[in-house]
Write a protein that binds this DNA or RNA. Structure first.
Length: 854
RNA sequence: GGGCGAUUGGCGCAGUCUGGUAGCGCGCUUCCCUGACACGGAAGAGGUCACAGGUUCAAGUCCUGUAUCGCCCA
């Protein structure tokens, strides 16, 4: 056992103890324990591209505090770590880093090596086309490096993760789980493919789901355009998208709008393009917007989709997947003016259509500038278009009242920390307006495990997809061949073709409980952890990650994925705005951990309650560091006295201390049970400071002595320290472990959480008779007097006189000797009287001679 | 436009569920190197609890409304 060091320090504790913990398997999950004895955490897998930031340190600490408390409370804690290395961010990095481009039509080349000068490519180097499988392998390699760095940081932060339990969202088990879950969704009719208008990002060239949309206010302009009524008179509509005129399929007004009622059922003709379109009625038309009659195009916005569907209109698509006007005009659209638009971007087309309308005289007046919300992909730069394409959907209650009710009920089953976050879930589920679009036209992700037969003309037959056996998962249909076919039949008439799409990243990460828990691959493990106890995450991804995980679990297991969720807040700049990139880049997590120490940073995080946005505050880290240093020093002092034989704590002051500590343990336990680690820390910390400032000062004179009274103090000191270390262990794992190692065996992190019973049994039953409170009054008065006299605390008190009730003076008598020692009081007297206990007279002596400065 | 949250000394926060003399930390001022700690200790100044009504013997706390800020969704 290492001796107590002369000058304890926090420096170097992180590396030293992490090494021991990994070696000893301190946080290893004990999988012999059955479900009732397990506490399972569905850890968020951080995105492995770029780097971790301060917000990660914050929220991951929160989960760790809860994990550590549960572990000490006797649970076998299942605390895995995942890496989300699947998706667009990684894809873009690999393209730039290795100078490659994924082309799913390429064949897999097992000997492919990326250019030797990876990472140092010159701008403009032509990209090499490689197969999807090769591309994924590169993504995987690059992710591994980041994952190592992330793991190092998390270990330094002291996360009590079981590092033998890790997964990657692009790893084999994850792809197997995602494909298996999808095949089962498909078999049960929960997943389906359909040709439908879909929000489409023209730059990424992929479909985008409702959960990834963001409205942005954009400048636009209403153009007033005349359509020709049968009698030749113009009917004016106003539109922000005149370029969609050739895609117009109808005009629509509100059924109650008297201006247009006579026209319902008639037709009008589009200017320039000469298409006859009906005038129809629908409640969604807004009479007060523009002229009150709108042009329906396929498709200008999501309302157009609704009208198109509900009014059963034809399709005249003109915007292609590249965001340009398609080369061929839809049926019936006049060729001549259309030819001028074909191939132009939407923006260019708008300019040209306006010019044409001005020439023809169909555009009236100047366009009116407005600002209006436009839908964007949240990572995209250009407004979304709506194109018709074949996509995969998963039922999520967006088009099914019964399922929606069931999912709301699942939300009800969860314990939300804090509770008010549930309304965000309810709002989102209640506001869904379509099923979950899970297919993406990208490359780095889990492929849909499907092939289609090609008929004699080479056309895919989508009705009966060719499915792999579950045992063969994961598969990549662009390189694997379906049963009963040979590789040379790929993309040949009479042969087969692969489904080209991958799954949305949320479609994989919504299965993290299944992936981490070994669903189907390790049924024994899965039964011990599922449904999990806790999903920690940020409140910004309730609508995506939290909700989608509930959906998958509900469909697959008929259960919630976990029984509780803890939502961490944001980190805000000191000026109360969301932590900006610039600050986040300057303040790196590793730098903070090095500068302040991990315990100090954890202390700051522990002061941010769940659901509460918290200011980034290095001041709090300094306070945390001070606490950790104080803990080392106070412990060193308390352990410096000779250890007494086991025996009772006899002195009243010592028993009062234990009684107070018993109350603290009860409060901290109650707080932790309610996931309120902040309050648990607060009560522990308050006790600790009064322990240092008052109790230790009071008893040190006695503890230096010998005999019964000294033994009582020494026993109380050690017992208190023992309990305090355990109370602080979740927040300050390094400092507490360090102190623990000075005088105890094993790890403090595997000791049981303290109970008030052990303290009351040791003598702390006299809470009502708190002589410490009386002592505190005397200490305060004497210190105040010495401060006012601007003299040293070593200045003796010649005489002190106190008054109070008989009971209070009896308590004073219990602490009189300790007080005389601590305050250097010569003559301590008292008499009954006064209103409550107080010190009425203090007589100071001469200050001692100043010692020379060392 | 709808939902959720916040508003308490210069700064960061607790207290609001369960009404009863306004608390903590940082910073600031003054003092002290006393047998763990100067990366320390002691003492002190500093707030009409966003605003307006209401309930109550009593409101930071409960109710109604308003304002400002933030987040989520239309």
């Amino acid at each position: 056992m290492p001796a107590v060091p002369d000058r304890p320090t926090l420096d170097g504790l992180e590396t030293r103890w992490d090494e021991v913990w990994q070696q000893e398997g301190t946080y290893r999950f004990d999988r012999t324990v059955d479900r009732a004895g397990v506490y399972a955490i569905d850890t968020p897998p951080p995105t492995v591209s770029g780097s971790l930031h301060v917000g990660h340190v914050f929220s991951y600490t929160h989960a760790d505090l809860l994990a550590r408390y549960q572990r000490m409370s006797g649970k076998s804690v299942f605390y895995p770590m995942g890496w989300d290395d699947n998706g667009l961010p990684t894809e873009r990095r690999v393209q730039n880093y290795s100078g490659v481009r994924c082309d799913p039509s390429q064949q897999y080349d097992p000997t492919f090596e990326p250019p030797a000068d990876s990472g140092a490519l010159k701008k403009g180097t032509p990209q090499v086309s490689i197969s999807r499988r090769n591309f994924i392998e590169l993504c995987h390699q690059l992710s591994l490096e980041d994952e190592k760095a992330f793991e190092g940081l998390f270990k330094r932060l002291g996360l009590s993760v079981d590092w033998t339990q890790t997964y990657e969202t692009i790893g084999d088990p994850a792809r197997r789980a995602a494909q298996r879950a999808f095949l089962r969704n498909l078999a049960r009719g929960e997943a389906y493919a359909t040709e439908a208008p879909t929000l489409w990002d023209v730059d990424y060239r992929t479909a985008v789901a409702q959960a990834e949309l963001a409205d942005r206010d954009m400048p636009g302009a209403y153009h007033r355009i005349g359509f020709a009524k049968p009698d030749g008179e113009p009917l004016f509509i106003e539109t922000t998208r005149p370029e969609l005129l050739p895609a117009c399929v109808a005009l629509v007004a509100h059924p109650d709008d008297e201006r247009y009622q006579p026209l319902f059922g008639t037709t009008v003709t589009t200017p320039l393009f000469g298409v006859e379109v009906p005038v129809l009625a629908h409640e969604l038309a807004q009479p007060d917007k523009g002229s009150g009659i709108a042009m329906i195009c396929t498709f200008g916005d999501t309302t157009d989709v609704t009208w198109w569907r509900e009014l059963d209109l034809p399709v005249r698509s003109i915007v292609g997947r590249d965001g340009r006007i398609v080369m061929t005009a839809p049926d019936g659209v006049a060729e001549a003016p259309y030819a001028e638009l074909a191939g132009k971007t939407v923006k260019q087309a708008q300019k040209r259509v306006v010019e044409l309308l001005v020439e023809s005289g169909d555009l009236v007046g100047e366009p009116t500038a407005i600002t209006h919300p436009v839908k964007f992909y949240e990572r995209g730069d250009r407004p979304l278009e709506i194109v018709t394409s074949r996509q995969w959907y998963l039922r999520n209650g967006g088009r099914d009242t019964e399922l929606r009710k069931e999912l709301l009920a699942r939300g009800e089953e969860l314990t939300w920390h804090p509770g008010f976050m549930q309304s965000r879930y309810d709002n989102w589920v209640g506001g869904l307006n379509g099923d979950w679009l899970i297919s993406r036209q990208r490359f780095f992700g889990v492929p849909f495990p499907l092939w289609y037969r090609l008929d004699e003309h080479g056309e895919a037959t989508y009705d009966e997809p060719l499915l792999p056996a579950e045992a063969d998962l994961p598969v990549d249909p662009t390189s694997d061949v379906p049963a009963g076919f040979t590789a040379d039949q790929r993309d040949q008439p009479g042969g087969f073709t692969a489904d080209p799409d991958i799954m949305d990243t949320w479609a994989t990460s919504s299965l993290t409980p299944q992936i981490a828990g070994g669903w189907e691959d390790d049924p024994d493990l899965f039964a011990r952890v599922f449904p999990y106890d806790l999903r920690p995450q940020g409140h910004d991804i309730i609508r995506t990650w939290l909700f989608s995980t509930v959906v998958r679990s509900h469909l697959e297991h008929g259960s919630v994925p976990w029984t509780g969720t803890a939502l961490s807040g944001w980190i805000l700049d000191p000026d109360r705005k969301k932590m900006s990139k610039s600050v986040g880049n300057v303040v790196t997590p590793l730098g903070l951990l090095e500068q302040h120490g991990s315990d100090a940073v954890r202390y700051w995080a522990a002061n941010g309650r769940l659901g509460t946005d918290t200011a980034f505050d290095e001041g709090q880290m300094k306070v945390g560091r001070r606490l950790a240093v104080k803990l080392l020093n106070a412990s060193k002092f308390a352990l410096g006295f000779p250890e007494a034989q086991t025996g009772p704590v006899t002195e009243a002051v010592d028993r009062a201390l234990l009684a107070r500590l018993a109350d603290v343990v009860d409060e901290a336990t109650k707080a932790f049970e309610a996931y309120d680690y902040t309050r648990a820390l607060d009560v522990t910390e308050a006790f600790f400071w009064s322990f240092c400032d008052d109790y230790i000062e009071l008893v040190k004179g006695r503890a230096y002595g010998e005999g019964e009274a000294a033994d009582s103090a020494n026993r109380a000191l050690r017992l208190t320290l023992d309990v305090l270390l355990r109370l602080f262990a979740p927040v300050l794992p390094f400092a507490t472990e360090e102190v623990w190692s000075w005088w105890q065996d094993g790890s403090v992190h595997r000791r049981p959480w303290p109970t008030s019973d052990e303290l009351r049994a040791a003598g702390g039953e006299a809470a009502a008779q708190d002589c410490l409170a009386v002592a505190a009054v005397v200490l305060e008065r004497v210190r105040g007097e010495k401060s006012r006299a601007k003299t040293s605390m070593k200045t003796p008190v010649l005489a002190l006189h106190a008054t109070g009730t008989e009971a209070e003076l009896a308590l004073l008598a219990q602490v009189a000797e300790d007080l005389k020692n601590a305050c250097l009081i010569g003559d301590l007297t008292s008499e009954p009287g006064g209103a409550g206990f107080d010190v009425v007279r203090i007589e100071l002596g001469e200050a001692p001679p100043k010692a020379p400065r060392p």
